[in-house]
Design a protein around this nucleic acid. Structure first.
Length: 834
DNA sequence: TTCGGACACCTGTAGACAGCATGTC
DNA sequence: CTACAGGTGTCCGAA
């Protein structure tokens, strides 16, 4: 079947595809067409990676647009959104417009509503529905990429609920779901009421095998001799073998999958011995340039180590890297400049980075819940293997698993190579997932009664595949109790039917895209300030055990609302009530004017306190406590106990206290960021990479903004607290101490420049308008253009720097200032803000 | 005394979405 | 209840 023979596509599209080299549709694509994908019929395509799934989606979307509709393409990662956008942009010549919408990026210019194709992450789509984006109910075609991710316990439910909502709002919506080959694609098709196209067909041959001893045994029965000398590294030998086997005039690149960041880094370092000697002169030059670029991204050890490896043609890739690092590595690998990448599973699920040979070195990974090394899922291994073979570059792809002994070799064959991927199972019926989605579903009007809610949930994958009818309802009821107890939802039970409505704050929480539990925690903490009910005591270690105190501390609110089994945060800290009988109820502040000794202590809200509040929320990913950290942070906890909002769990309550300390570690990281501590210092102090730091800061910024909104909207939080939250947020946003906030707000002035200006005596935006130009120029290291732009942005009437000479002393002050700042950033100055 | 190698013990463990309003060195 | 690779420290013998 030729593209140009297809009807229903915009004019010229078929021909354009043929011009791209698509002379004939691949068998799965043809099957998709026969199943009606260009006629608006829904479809589930469960086919291997790189076998033309995207084209199936394009055919669906383009034909839908030709019929006058619009299409939405849902991706699981932000990075994939931009990848797909770039891919689809080739249709702009045919009058198709593309828009992207993700958390950190939105197509500029025209509004998304005018776009034919919108690419967005599943969370963003969910959020757009919650916020009532007008174009959502005009969609005629939705594509869900990597739909097998509904199996993911954290993010799967979002995709599931979002698809259900889209289908409810748009009757007759064409749903095209693209999936990896999974055990039960048929169930997904049933759920979506779609045709199923399932196939193992691949455009490039993929051979998978296991290496043990002196050869790779492939699953097709063939063998390739790759002898490993004694003492020689197995991985290195296989990478060398691929590089030394020329196809198409070039050696093949390799992708090595390992199970930890550290292993990725050390593997990359070791493999430089293989890659470095095989580089050509020009490659060496390009790599040196790339290494410089990498060093420029961040001055952490991670960045330096990466640059060192890249210089020699090898690289590592994991989530500790800054996103710029990652894309530099990915691009250079695709450009065949980097010969080998050692990666954690990030790369298997991420953007397209194919290699001639994929080496799966580690097939087990540590899992705390499991209690040891857990074998990876078949699906995960298949995804990794699927990265082998670059279309158009390699005549074939090879995926090799490594075994140390014959038994392991057998096991790998049976467990992975000959096995089908696991079935996908919905994870919707879990409290954290439903907490969020039940609230959103009620808040955005998809259900107004308990029955309506349950019948909406009946449209999810969970409902189509479960045997246990009652479970979803049971969890839903638990969650409703929680939401009602926290005043996010109002329920009225009259005449048998139970009606549901989101409260004002419930709507806000839903729109802010917060986990309701995060919101409850933040509201609770913020109210503590207003009531003067700050933690007065780091818990009554001696008075009463946590096990039994809960019984005699029943506050008014507890007796009313606190039913067992939910609402950990309603007033979960009963153990904090000690024999003194102090009023600990946050809500009961009507009678709290009788502020005792705690009132004075609580009047001061510090950034650390606020950072801890958002850090202990379930929306903030936890930082590990390493050995020695427990001690460090316990100490910090006592030192600064007055600053924390809400109660501190007892030290004897192991798990909760550990969690609390882990949040404290995050909070201190944020405080460091807001006190201008250098990135490399922070990386060292917290044992994280630049990517982690930026991730934390980013999440904190989001949560702090949400906290600010909540503080404003909710009753019982005073104005000073709102201001304190705003300031704490701004300090995270700019990464500066308080005194630089004004300066850093000026465009083109970041944390570094603000500090230099400040040390030179230019301390405010107003100073910028009045200050001696020589001083400004000196502080900015004589950069005239920069100085002019900054003065202009500060509102100065005559920003011109013509004939201005940089003031030497200003320059010296600026340098000395920032230098001493760095030096003085030891522990002594920690916590020194004002 | 110093150095290097073998070996025992210790340590630490993958990933990354959202809001909102514009711009870092 | 469960692992394991890499890094670090220790001990020994040789130079």
């Amino acid at each position: 079947m030729q593209p140009s023979s297809l009807s229903g596509l915009p004019a010229g599209v078929g021909e354009a595809l043929e011009a791209e080299g698509v002379a004939e549709l691949y068998p799965p694509q043809q099957a998709a067409v026969e199943a009606g994908v260009v006629d608006g019929d829904s479809l589930v395509a469960a086919v291997p990676t790189a076998s033309g799934k995207t084209l199936i989606a394009e055919l669906a979307m383009l034909s839908a647009i030709e019929r006058g509709g619009t299409a939405l393409y849902i991706v699981p990662l932000r990075a994939l959104a931009s990848e797909k956008k770039t891919e689809f942009e080739r249709w702009e010549d045919h009058g198709i417009t593309i828009g992207v919408s993700t958390g950190n990026y939105e197509s500029d210019g025209e509004w998304l509503a005018t776009r034919d194709i919108i690419v967005a992450t599943s969370e963003k789509v969910d959020s757009l529905i919650r916020n009532g984006a007008p174009w959502i109910d005009d969609l005629t075609c939705v594509v869900s990429d990597e739909v097998h991710l509904v199996d993911d316990s954290h993010r799967g439910p979002t995709l599931e609920v979002t698809l259900a909502k889209l289908r409810k709002v748009n009757s007759g919506l064409q749903t095209v779901a693209l999936s990896a080959t999974v055990g039960n694609a048929g169930v997904i098709a049933d759920w979506l009421n779609a045709e199923l196209v399932e196939s193992d067909w691949r455009p490039i041959d993929l051979r998978t095998g296991v290496h043990f001893g002196n050869a790779i045994d492939f699953d097709d029965g063939s063998k390739r001799e790759v002898p490993v000398d004694r003492g020689e590294d197995q991985t290195a030998r296989l990478v060398a073998d691929a590089l030394d086997t020329e196809e198409d005039g070039q050696g093949g690149s390799s992708l090595v999958f390992v199970n930890s960041r550290r292993n990725a880094e050390s593997s990359a370092r070791k493999l430089t011995d293989v890659t470095a000697p095989r580089l050509t002169g020009p490659e060496r030059d390009d790599l040196r340039e790339l290494a410089e670029e990498i060093r420029g991204v961040s001055d952490t050890d991670t960045s330096e180590d990466l640059a060192d490896a890249v210089e020699q043609g090898s690289a590592f890739h994991h989530a500790g890297l800054a996103s710029e690092h990652r894309s530099l590595v990915e691009d250079a690998f695709r450009a065949r400049l980097i010969k080998c990448v050692s990666a954690t599973p990030t790369l298997a699920a991420g953007v397209n980075t194919p290699a001639r040979r994929v080496i799966v070195r580690d097939w087990r990974r540590y899992d705390g819940e499991f209690g040891g090394m857990k074998p990876l899922d078949v699906l995960e291994i298949h995804q990794m293997c699927g990265r082998a073979g670059r279309p158009g570059l390699d005549p074939y792809g090879e995926a090799v698993l490594l075994a140390n002994d014959a038994d392991t070799k057998e096991e790998l064959f049976e467990r992975y190579l000959w096995a089908d991927a696991e079935p996908v199972r919905s994870k919707l019926a879990a409290e954290p997932a439903l907490r969020t989605h039940v609230l959103a579903t009620v808040a955005s009007g998809f259900a107004s009664t308990r029955d309506g809610l349950l019948s909406f949930l009946d449209n999810t994958l969970y409902a189509t595949q479960t045997d246990d009818e009652g479970r979803l309802a049971a969890v839903t009821d638990t969650v409703l109790d929680y939401l009602a107890a926290n005043d996010f939802v109002e329920r009225e039970r009259d005449a048998g039917a139970e009606s549901l409505a989101a409260t004002g704050i419930g709507h806000t929480v839903s729109r802010l895209y917060l986990d309701p539990m995060s919101a409850a925690e933040m509201i609770d903490g913020l109210r503590t300030v207003a009531t003067g009910d700050a933690p007065s005591d780091v818990v009554d270690a001696g008075t009463g055990t946590s096990a039994d105190t809960g019984e005699f501390i029943m506050t008014a609110e507890n007796t009313d609302d606190d039913e067992p089994g939910f609402g950990t945060y309603v007033r979960a800290d009963a153990e904090n009530g000690d024999a003194s009988g102090e009023a600990i109820d946050g809500e009961a502040n009507a009678d709290a004017e009788d502020g005792d000794e705690t009132a004075a202590a609580s009047s001061e809200v510090t950034p650390l306190g606020i950072y801890h509040l958002v850090s202990r929320t379930p929306d903030m990913y936890e930082l590990y406590l390493k050995s020695g950290d427990r001690e460090t942070y316990t100490e910090l906890c006592y030192e600064r106990e007055k600053e924390f909002l809400g109660d501190i769990p007892s030290e004897y309550e192991d798990v909760r206290f550990e969690d609390w300390l882990a949040s404290l570690k995050t909070a201190r990281l944020l405080e460091d960021w807001a006190t201008e501590v250098d990135e490399d210092r922070m990386a060292e102090r917290y044992g994280v990479g630049p990517g982690d730091i930026r991730g934390k800061v980013d999440t904190a910024e989001w949560l702090l903004r949400a906290a600010e909104t909540l503080a404003r909207d909710v009753e019982g939080v005073d104005g000073d607290t709102v201001v304190a939250v705003r300031e704490a947020r701004k300090r995270i946003e700019y990464g500066v101490r308080e005194e630089l906030l004004d300066l850093a707000g000026v465009r083109n002035v970041g944390r570094k420049r603000a500090r230099r200006l400040f040390e030179a005596g230019v301390k405010t935006r107003a100073d910028l308008r009045e200050a001696d130009k020589g001083t400004v120029l000196g502080a900015l290291r004589g950069r005239e253009r920069t100085a002019e732009r900054i003065l202009e942005n500060a509102g100065r009437e005559d920003p011109s720097m013509d004939d201005v000479r940089p003031d030497k002393s200003a320059s010296a002050a600026a340098t000395a200032g920032s230098a001493s700042d760095e030096d003085g950033e030891g522990q002594a100055s920690l916590g020194d803000f004002r």
